[in-house]
Deep mutational scan, measured.
Amino acid sequence: MDVFMKGLSKAKEGVVAAAEKTKQGVAEAAGKTKEGVLYVGSKTKEGVVHGVATVAEKTKEQVTNVGGAVVTGVTAVAQKTVEGAGSIAAATGFVKKDQLGKNEEGAPQEGILEDMPVDPDNEAYEMPSEEGYQDYEPEA
């Protein structure tokens, strides 16, 4: 019985440690998101679009440190934060509304985080759909 109880105690310690790591990862992701939003706020009209992409990228980098179902929630929060940063930029006159959601080359930025393969159960990952990809044929 002692062996059984000791095993359960060790398992509990492992769960607590994993929860603490997840909590730490979420806190880091939130900190990076805040950094990115402050970065966007300090940019001029020309830099705002690039700044919004930076927020998304920093958040995406930190999301990889967070495991399990938390990833889905962090990704949703990050996307809403990026959308909010863009709205703030438009409201303050840093950028025109028609410039939001495009990178410096004018290509749409939507789907940055949505296409990231995420499995809350950590069982399997699927690649994003290939609808947006084109076949590449090298020139002879």
Rank of each mutant, 00 (worst) to 15 (best):
M1T: 00
M1I: 00
D2V: 01
D2W: 02
F4Y: 11
F4L: 05
M5K: 08
M5Q: 01
K6V: 03
K6S: 05
L8T: 00
L8Q: 00
S9Y: 03
K10E: 02
A11T: 06
A11M: 15
K12Q: 01
G14E: 05
V15H: 00
V16P: 00
V16C: 07
A17Q: 13
K21A: 13
K23Q: 02
K23N: 04
G25N: 12
V26A: 03
V26D: 00
V26K: 00
V26L: 07
A27T: 10
A27K: 15
A27C: 03
A29C: 13
A29Q: 04
A30V: 06
K32E: 00
K34R: 14
E35A: 07
V37C: 09
V37D: 00
L38A: 09
Y39V: 05
S42P: 00
K43W: 10
T44V: 07
E46M: 05
V48W: 06
V48T: 02
V49R: 13
H50N: 13
H50C: 10
H50W: 15
V52A: 10
V55W: 15
A56F: 12
K58I: 15
T59A: 15
K60A: 09
E61I: 09
E61W: 02
E61C: 10
E61M: 04
Q62W: 05
Q62L: 06
V63W: 08
T64K: 09
T64D: 05
T64W: 14
N65Y: 05
N65D: 04
N65E: 11
V66M: 11
G67H: 09
G67A: 08
A69P: 05
V70E: 08
V71N: 06
T72C: 04
G73M: 01
G73R: 13
V74Y: 04
V74M: 14
T75C: 07
T75G: 09
V77T: 07
V77S: 02
V77P: 03
A78N: 04
Q79V: 03
Q79P: 02
Q79F: 07
K80L: 12
T81V: 10
T81K: 05
V82D: 04
V82N: 05
V82H: 07
V82P: 05
E83V: 00
G84A: 03
G84M: 08
A85N: 02
A85I: 15
S87I: 04
I88W: 06
I88Q: 05
A89C: 10
T92N: 04
T92C: 04
T92G: 08
V95Y: 05
V95T: 08
V95S: 13
K96E: 10
K96A: 14
K96G: 02
D98V: 09
D98S: 09
Q99M: 13
K102T: 10
N103P: 03
E105I: 11
G106N: 11
G106W: 13
A107I: 07
A107G: 06
A107R: 09
Q109E: 11
E110W: 14
I112E: 10
I112Y: 06
D115N: 13
D115L: 08
P117I: 12
P117M: 09
P117V: 14
V118S: 05
V118L: 13
D119S: 02
D119T: 10
D119Q: 15
P120I: 14
E123R: 11
Y125K: 04
Y125M: 02
M127C: 03
P128V: 03
P128M: 03
S129R: 07
E130V: 02
E131P: 14
E131I: 13
G132D: 14
Y133P: 15
Y133R: 12
E137G: 13
E137P: 08
E137M: 11
P138N: 14
E139V: 08
A140F: 09
A140K: 15
